[in-house]
């Protein structure tokens, strides 16, 4: 329980950091000039970070999942992120036009896909490293 809470809290801090930095960059670039930093803005960032931390709960199952269950969990994770971000931009940022919402949804999909591909790449290099170590162990034991 403590481990899960610690992990969620560190996720929250990371999300909060990146979200704040992201908003600051957008504001600096003049893409979202409506941002005025203050108490309300701070609360807004904290609330959004809490919402965005929630999908991480899906990955804290102790049960060993089958391949299909893992796929379902992935899809569910993606859908929840889509919903939360779209909810955020619709009610928080006032983005109401269908075209803008579709662009946001596609952007989230691309970002999710890139993160997923990054994970795959890391897993492949990890497996390669393990195979090299395995070969060394076998050589030693022969």
């Amino acid at each position: 329980m403590r481990e899960v809470a610690g992990k969620l809290f560190s996720n929250f801090l990371l999300i909060y950091l990146f979200l704040t930095a992201d908003m600051a960059v957008l504001s600096g670039l003049g893409i979202n000039p409506g941002i005025s930093v203050g108490f309300g803005w701070e609360i807004n960032m904290l609330a959004r970070s809490v919402f965005l931390t929630l999908p991480g709960l899906i990955f804290n199952s102790k049960r060993e999942l089958s391949v299909w269950e893992t796929v379902v969990r992935r899809v569910l994770h993606f859908c929840i992120i889509e919903l939360i971000v779209l909810f955020n931009v619709y009610f928080g940022d006032g983005v109401r036009t269908p075209k803008a919402l579709i662009i946001v949804a596609i952007s989230i999909f691309i970002a999710y896909l890139l993160v997923f591909l990054g994970e795959c790449f890391l897993s492949f290099s990890e497996a390669e490293k393990m195979n090299r170590m395995l070969a060394e162990i076998k050589k030693k034991n022969d």
Binding site: R74, E119, S123, E126, A127, N131, L134
Partner: peptide, 16 residues
């Protein structure tokens, strides 16, 4: 038995 493993390959979600 590690010595009986031929190779590793990645699976979804940091599993192998």
């Amino acid at each position: 038995n590690i010595l009986k493993i031929e190779s590793f390959r990645p699976a979804l979600d940091s599993r192998f």
